[in-house]
């Protein structure tokens, strides 16, 4: 069976599970909303919130990512479905791409909601098509990197003892460059933090390169996880 077919089957299955269980709708989105509100209370000073909004969006994304990755692999380990996938001899690259794709779709929805929350709670604004395009490219690129490393380290932690505590330890340091790059790029899109548009696009370009690197590296590295 082709890698693309495996990837699509896995992604469709994960999204169907999400649609049925509504964990994203009933738990992850409210959780990220609470985080954004708490940030608003903690940093309630004139103009401060709108200036740091891009960083807060990505911090809330990162916290939610941990919950989403744990959920994504809990459905595989509950009844040892992950073992069944390994026995089935499916393409490990297809498995990685499928799980990443499903995670990316959910992260994309989450980030759109978070940006809307930032507009409402932090009074941030995106003026003009150029800035909107930069924000869109940044979100898509950052989400693809986060989904890739989330899937890779989620798979690694899924087979180990203490996976709930191991995952943040593995994932957060790897996600740090993404948070930095995405924050700078979104500062340019929001016209906060004194970042010029040209610089914002450079950060977005870096995120795209990281996305390609993560996807290729993850697709190659996931095979070793499945074999183990």
């Amino acid at each position: 069976m082709s890698t693309a077919r495996v990837a699509l089957a896995i992604a469709a299955k994960d999204l169907r599970i999400e649609r049925r269980s509504r964990v994203m709708l009933n738990q992850v989105l409210p959780f990220s909303g609470v985080v954004m509100v708490l940030f608003a209370f903690a940093l309630d000073k004139a103009n401060l919130l709108s200036r740091v909004a891009p960083g807060l969006i990505w911090m809330a994304t990162l916290f939610s990512l941990l919950v989403m990755v744990q959920r994504s692999f809990a459905v595989e380990t509950d009844d040892r479905a992950f073992d069944a996938l390994a026995v089935a001899g499916l393409s490990p690259t297809g498995l990685f791409l499928g799980k990443s794709l499903a995670l990316a779709v959910q992260l994309l929805v989450l980030d759109v909601v978070l940006v809307l929350l930032a507009v409402v709670l932090y009074e941030t604004k995106i003026h003009g098509g150029g800035r909107l395009a930069l924000a869109a490219v940044t979100i898509v690129a950052a989400v693809s990197v986060l989904a890739g490393i989330g899937t890779l380290y989620g798979g690694l932690a899924a087979g180990s003892k203490g996976r709930d505590t191991l995952l943040p330890l593995l994932l957060l340091p790897m996600a740090a460059p993404v948070v930095i790059g995405a924050t700078r790029s979104m500062e340019a899109a929001f016209a906060t933090g004194g970042i010029a548009m040209r610089e914002g696009w450079a950060w977005a370009g870096l995120l795209v390169a990281l996305g390609v690197l993560t996807t290729v590296g993850g697709a190659l590295g996931f095979s070793a996880l499945i074999e183990e």
């Binding site: 069976m1 269980s21 459905v75 009844d79 040892r80 479905a81 390994a86 026995v87 001899g89 499916l90």
Partner: peptide, 19 residues
């Protein structure tokens, strides 16, 4: 290649509970 031709059923069923 062998794995795609065999089915292994252990103590767990390998099913997705929400589906």
């Amino acid at each position: 290649a062998i794995r795609s031709r065999v089915g292994l059923l252990g103590h767990a069923n390998g099913l997705y509970q929400d589906l």
